[in-house]
Write a protein that binds this DNA or RNA. Structure first.
Length: 681
DNA sequence: GAGTTTGAAACT
DNA sequence: CAGTTTCAAACTC
């Protein structure tokens, strides 16, 4: 078990000294670009200070011009901050040159990767321990061991080197060869350490990552802009990839890390199987996976999967990686509809879907399924069989099915979620594609002009729920509320027609529903009896499926600043960091529901049994929604759930991907809660 | 898979 | 703001 090598910070220290040198200052004085020293911390967020509320929920923008699903961000949002990268670039460039896998397909990732390196110096001061480790870890994830570094350098010359490379010292160049291996080995240690941290202290590191990611985003964007003067929107995706990789890494490579610890500093790991797959995966992983997926991939899942006696096939593992590899950059403003719908079953993916995923398009649904599915081994990653399995196993790529809206109205789930439609969508005459970016943006503007909150999260945590940091962790879904409230007439708020129910939140006074029987909480404050198995099932499912849409904070009062919880993690880091500062609870929000189901609080104790019963006790007479839970073996039971029924359902049944996915999500929800806020109280 | 139901979104 | 229409998801068969 390696402890972080403090010597790794040396480059940054040198950099700081270099920046402080009179020569550097003199040169700097000629530069129109503001130099931000390594010690600067908040400056990287400066741009955010100027973000209008709408910027936090920006209009769509293509973050990566690929025929893939990804959130579109407003151009304003992608405007990179002008500070903080130049000086950092000295280190960043060197690292970038040596580490980057500048593949066209992952250019955005690469750029962010490169830029992020410079950010790492900033992080040193903020998070001396973790913050410095993650960026570095990330930067290497953008390549595989097989990557041709020469090509990388070439690309860098054409991209970021022009900007960042200026500060690259010969010393750093000479260190390339050595660092290349050193850092790789270091990453493994770091990751492993992170994993330890996670296990010991919950998900605190996630918070650190979010902060780090913010800065990474900044720098990455800067590099893009400075390099070619164009608004390179790939920054967001790439940056996100960073975080995704970071967060994903510990889990994905849990096995590897264990082995990686035995690697010698020279980088010549005696276990190639452990080290190589790590980097190999990360290359792909970095290109895409959204953070929410990463959250899903929390240690809880990992552990539980291990505990699980189910013989989860390796293809599931493969599927997950596949997903991570190809998933596009996330965006934000995730709506209820955009949340993965694991309940839709996990029928095989269509080949078209697979092909789309090969292009970097991964439906959220599949992502959910895949990412939640496993403790994969690196060995299973890649290979033709994986694709086959992927086609066979991954399913649930149900996307929008718009026929008349052209996917340019809020009717369209994809559009409403800030996502472009992708191949799995069954939409017709779809204009919600990158090639129609202008139209998408314009339409979105129009909608926003009509309703500024149209793309804002629909579910918020009520202000009264935002109590002390610890207290909120125990909030139940019922403590969150649909922003506008539902208007159900006939569904009794017991079906997914009801947005409140679909979001797994209770109805509130703002709801205009009739005959409300919302299992998560009626608008009159009551709760349905716990005996209703179907409702319980639905509640549980909805809570887990939709937890990512819960918003912390006074969203009503600051609608634009209401951030969907998982969306926070999916936000471009630039926003996440800011949001964390402005709304400390926001970062936690993604964990809230998780924790709620696990810990239960005074607010939720009354409902907790219901969740648990649905979790652990799958009714025999299950409805159509039940099958996906069959085969579940719920092992990790919340210690606080004393009245849980602790039922291992259908132990004889094989673990299906769907069941795993469902279970995993549950586990995830439990694993995240202890995550503290980054922001000061 | 087709048809129905439902409620949000959009429109007037 | 209210009533109506349109729309697509959820649901049922």
């Amino acid at each position: 078990m390696a402890t972080p090598d403090k010597t790794q910070l040396t480059p940054t220290s040198n950099l700081s000294k270099f920046e402080d040198s009179p020569v550097f200052k003199y040169i700097d004085s000629f530069s129109p670009i503001e130099i931000v020293k390594s010690k600067q911390t908040d400056n990287v967020f400066s741009s955010l200070a100027f973000l209008s509320p709408s910027s936090l929920f920006p209009s769509p923008q293509i973050s990566c011009h690929r025929e893939s699903r990804h959130h579109f961000l407003s151009p304003s949002n992608s405007k990179p901050p002008r500070s903080g990268h130049e000086s950092n670039a000295t280190e960043g460039a060197s690292k970038a040159d040596e580490q980057s896998n500048l593949h066209d397909e992952h250019l955005g990732c690469l750029k962010n990767d490169c830029s992020s390196k410079g950010t790492s110096s900033d992080l040193l001061n903020d998070q001396p321990d973790l913050a410095t480790e993650f960026p570095r870890t990330l930067k290497y994830n953008c390549r595989s061991p097989d990557d041709n570094f020469e090509s990388c350098n070439e690309v860098m010359k054409n991209t970021s080197v022009g900007v960042a490379g200026e500060g690259r010292s010969p010393f750093q160049r000479n260190r390339d060869g050595w660092e290349k291996r050193q850092l790789q080995e270091r990453d493994l240690r770091k990751i492993f350490r992170v994993d330890q941290i996670e296990e010991s202290a919950g998900c605190d590191w996630v918070a650190v990552l979010s902060d780090v990611a913010d800065k990474l985003t900044m720098d990455s964007s800067i590099i893009h802009e400075n390099t070619d003067g164009q608004d390179q929107r790939t920054a967001d995706s790439g940056t996100t990839s960073f975080m995704s990789t970071i967060m994903q890494f510990p889990l994905d490579n849990v096995n590897n890390l264990e082995n990686a610890d035995s690697c010698d500093p020279s980088g010549s790991c005696n276990q190639n199987e452990s080290a190589v797959p790590v980097t190999d995966q990360t290359h792909s992983i970095l290109s895409t996976c959204p953070l929410d997926k990463l959250v899903v991939s929390d240690s809880g899942l990992k552990k539980d999967v291990k505990e699980e006696n189910c013989n989860q096939s390796s293809h599931q593992v493969s599927i997950r990686r596949r997903c991570l590899v190809f998933e596009k950059s996330p965006g934000f403003g995730l709506h209820l509809n955009s949340l993965p719908n694991i309940s839709k079953g996990h029928s095989p993916l269509s080949k078209s879907t697979l092909s789309s995923m090969d292009r970097g398009e991964v439906p959220d649904d599949k992502i959910a399924v895949i990412t939640e599915n496993s403790s994969e081994t690196p060995a299973t990653f890649g290979g033709n069989s994986i694709e086959q399995k992927f086609v066979e196993e991954s399913a649930a790529c149900k996307r929008c099915n718009c026929k008349r809206s052209k996917c340019l109205k809020l009717y369209c789930d994809c559009f409403a979620a800030g996502l472009y439609c992708i191949e799995p969508c069954a939409c017709q005459d779809c204009f919600n594609k990158p090639i129609h970016e202008n139209m998408v943006l314009e339409t979105r503007r129009q909608i926003e002009s009509r309703n500024p909150l149209a793309f804002a999260p629909k579910v918020i945590r009520s202000a009264d729920s935002v109590s002390d940091s610890l207290g909120e962790i125990n909030k139940t879904p019922a403590s969150a509320r649909h922003k506008r409230g539902c208007n159900c007439k006939r569904s009794s708020c017991l079906k997914k027609y009801c947005e409140c129910f679909q979001a797994g939140v209770g109805c509130s006074l703002s709801c205009r529903c009739e005959g409300c029987k919302n299992s998560f909480g009626r608008k009159d404050g009551g709760y349905e009896s716990e005996s209703d198995g179907d409702n319980l099932e639905a509640c549980e499912r909805n809570a887990s499926e939709k937890n990512s849409d819960i918003v912390i904070g006074k969203g009503e009062e600051h609608p634009h600043l209401s951030v969907v919880s998982p969306d926070i993690s999916r936000l471009p880091f630039a926003y996440r960091g800011k949001l964390a500062a402005v709304f400390p609870h926001s970062i936690k929000s993604s964990l809230q529901l998780c924790s709620t189901q696990e810990q239960g609080s005074s607010d939720s104790l009354s409902r907790q049994p219901r969740f648990d019963s649905s979790l652990h006790g799958i009714p025999e007479n299950e409805t159509a929604e039940v099958p996906k839970h069959k085969g579940l073996t719920l092992v990790s039971k919340p210690p606080t759930s004393n009245n849980c029924k602790t039922v291992s359902s259908t132990p004889n049944q094989p673990c299906t991907s769907s069941s795993i996915a469902w279970r995993s999500r549950k586990l995830i929800l439990r694993s995240i809660p202890s995550f503290p806020s980054l922001a000061p109280p």
